[in-house]
């Protein structure tokens, strides 16, 4: 069975990730869930809109998962990102790993989300009451 799960989806079901990463050789699972925060610099966010260049995003996500499998002794790795319109508190990304011992999956989990934010072509627009802003677009 493939050790990597790489997906772009419309809706994330956070209850699925335990089954995705569960594994007889693993003594631990570490998961990060990114969610929609209500306030950005004091301004109330109505929703977030995620857009992607899907073909390239899946390739970049796959590279990150493969790199993690090389750097740490992991049994399974997941990177699942949602696109479309997301409301406050909704999950937008799930990354995680399972490993025999916890150090590997803790470190890998941080690497997965940090690298995703740097390289994967997914864009987030913050929609406020009276404006919308592409995050990180301008200095």
């Amino acid at each position: 069975m493939d050790r990597k799960i790489i997906e772009i989806v419309q809706t994330i079901d956070t209850s699925q990730v335990f089954t995705d990463l569960s594994d007889a050789q693993s003594g631990g699972i570490c998961v990060f869930v990114g969610t929609v925060r209500e306030f950005t610099q004091g301004e109330a966010v109505v929703s977030l809109e995620f857009e992607t260049y899907e073909k390239m995003a899946l390739k970049e996500m796959d590279k990150i998962a493969s790199d993690a499998l090389e750097k740490w002794k992991l049994n399974k790795v997941i990177i699942r990102h949602a696109v479309g319109l997301k409301k406050v508190e909704e999950p937008v990304v799930v990354v995680g790993a399972s490993s025999a011992h916890r150090d590997a999956c803790f470190e890998a989990c941080r690497y997965l989300i940090d690298t995703l934010k740097e390289t994967v072509p997914i864009w987030k627009k913050e929609v406020f009451e009276n404006k919308a802003v592409w995050v990180s677009a301008h200095p």
Binding site: T52, M56, A57, I113, V120, I122, W123, V135, S136, A137
Partner: peptide
């Protein structure tokens, strides 16, 4: 070919 503006996933 694609233009990739600053990414902001996650």
């Amino acid at each position: 070919i694609a233009i990739i503006p600053p990414v902001s996933g996650g």
